[in-house]
Amino acid sequence: MNDELCPVARSVELIGDRWSLLIVRDAFDGMRRFGDFQRSLGMARNILSDRLRKLVDAGILEMQDASDGTAYQEYVLTAKGESLFPIVVALRQWGEQHLFKRGERHSVLIDKRTGKPIPRMAPQAKDGSALPPAATEVRKVM
């Protein structure tokens, strides 16, 4: 077990590398098979195998028989994995805001019900008002 007391550090240890986050992103986009992940990400088989194994061991992905009845196995997000959605969305929105020039083309996350981009995510106070960093503090456990 990780002795780190900081939840951010523990999270980064598990899913903070580029490949793990991109695998999770692709899983949210509907990818399930090893070959699809490999084609999308262009990564070496051994690295992909290692990251998939770690994500399965951590309970973020699970292996299932292929949905089309073939002999393949598929990687599917678990409830724990699906709970990473706000993190992937926050990274996406931060990147859209800070890493693209005005007018530069990029993908956009759309609400299927409305056909419109999803609203910007931001921490909120209990009353629903915006919660800036200065209004928060981290309390260390003893």
Rank of each mutant, 00 (worst) to 15 (best):
G95T: 09
E74C: 00
Q124K: 14
V12D: 07
S129F: 06
L61G: 01
L21M: 15
F37R: 00
A130R: 07
L99Q: 06
R51G: 06
K116W: 04
A58F: 09
V8M: 13
A71H: 10
R25Y: 09
G95W: 08
S83I: 03
P132L: 05
S83W: 05
T114E: 04
I15V: 15
P123T: 04
S67R: 08
A134L: 11
G103S: 08
I23G: 01
L5Q: 12
V24P: 04
A122T: 12
N2I: 12
S40K: 07
V141H: 13
Q73S: 09
S11M: 13
A122I: 03
M1S: 14
K116D: 09
E96I: 14
Q97H: 11
H98F: 15
T136R: 12
I60D: 00
E13D: 11
P119I: 05
A125K: 13
R53C: 05
C6T: 06
L21C: 07
T114L: 08
M31V: 06
R10Q: 04
P86I: 09
L99R: 03
G30H: 02
S107Q: 09
D57T: 06
G16F: 02
V8G: 10
I15F: 11
P132N: 01
S20W: 05
A90G: 09
T78L: 08
P132G: 00
G69V: 05
N2S: 14
G81S: 05
I87F: 11
T78W: 04
M63H: 00
L84N: 10
V88F: 06
R92Q: 13
A71Q: 08
K112H: 06
R51I: 09
D17S: 14
G95P: 01
L41I: 14
E74R: 03
S11K: 07
W19I: 13
L77R: 00
G69K: 04
A71F: 03
F37I: 02
V56F: 00
